[in-house]
Design a protein around this nucleic acid. Sequence first.
DNA 1: ACAATGACAATTTACATAATTTGTAATTTG
DNA 2: CAAATTACAAATTATGTAAATTGTCATTGT
Lengths: 199, 199
Amino acid sequence: MPTREPSETRILSVASEHLRQFGLKRFTVVAVAEEAGMTHANVYRYFPSRGALIDAVVDVWLKTTERRLADIADGPDPAADKLERLILALAKGNRDLLSEDPHLFAALSQAVAKRHAISRRNRTRVRALFERVIDEGIASGAFEPRDRDRAIAFVIDATHRFIHPAALALEADVPQASVDARLATLIRVALRVLETGII
Amino acid sequence: MPTREPSETRILSVASEHLRQFGLKRFTVVAVAEEAGMTHANVYRYFPSRGALIDAVVDVWLKTTERRLADIADGPDPAADKLERLILALAKGNRDLLSEDPHLFAALSQAVAKRHAISRRNRTRVRALFERVIDEGIASGAFEPRDRDRAIAFVIDATHRFIHPAALALEADVPQASVDARLATLIRVALRVLETGII
DNA sequence: ACAATGACAATTTACATAATTTGTAATTTG
DNA sequence: CAAATTACAAATTATGTAAATTGTCATTGT
């Protein structure tokens, strides 16, 4: 007989599937427990609350995209290339989630809006990746901003519209090609700004 | 005896006061009519629906700030100065509304989120002011973008975070001075980008 | 000791129904 | 005739209650 998947991971994967299928409102601990082959009380051995279980599902997705971003940031390419790919990957990741998995996107949006710990920590780590790449660009001489902190804030503020879930949801019906073109312009300008010491 | 304020304006000012005090959810046509000294049916002589009345209140505010923006755009100053003041006035107007009148801000946010006609038209007119000032800057030689449409989209996208109600609401608890500093940086950079033909 | 359960209280949600509000139209008033 | 009202249907919201879910804990089984 096959070794059964440990309870915690089984709960998590069932919960993930339920959240995708039914959305936040119709997501119940009872139904998840049943499908995972246990009573709901046992779920509470592994997750302290319904909200914590939902956060755990969102966190899995956040961590997955974080790894993709970290791979980019850790690569051997020039800082400018890496910063561009970092921004594009973040924007595309969130945008694809919105179109391919609206329920999970809604859960992510709520976690961000309500400033859950998972989203605050994700934000901190993603910001750290941006900082690392920009610092690397400064060290290599590719970027020459007059104020490093200001430069980082500028990049994050300027790209906000294409990265933040709440902003992305506003443009759900704008043709993707048009959004892509505007983002490409913004990135090109931001890189030039960092390179030329305008900031 | 004093000539009574005409019904339509009286309804509108009572409605404005009720919206500010009670918010969208507790705003009723019946209560507005009562305070305006008439039955609710008579309100429908002037406004076709509850939603239209709320939109009219929001529209008064939008038009007021539009006039302020138009005054800036019509002024005799250099285009760069006017563009800076345009962005600052828009950002400050929305931000002050958020802190001083959260209920009206919520009504505005909803009108924007649901793409009501009033907000779409406001957006179009405000965008036209931006276009006018940028075109003026191009005509005077102050701005030299390689692509005029791209430049306009860039300015609007980059400042989105400080102007759009949904984005402003996210930063309600960030110290205003810090937000102001970041916006000042963004504006300075945007102007330099327009001036130097980076875009 | 650890995973899981059954039983149970607290909380939330679903649902039926009452009350209110929205919106329309015929009628009244000045 | 323009402004307003009364009267009423339709739609929405409030309220009370049943049902389900969330969360706790003592107990069971391994």
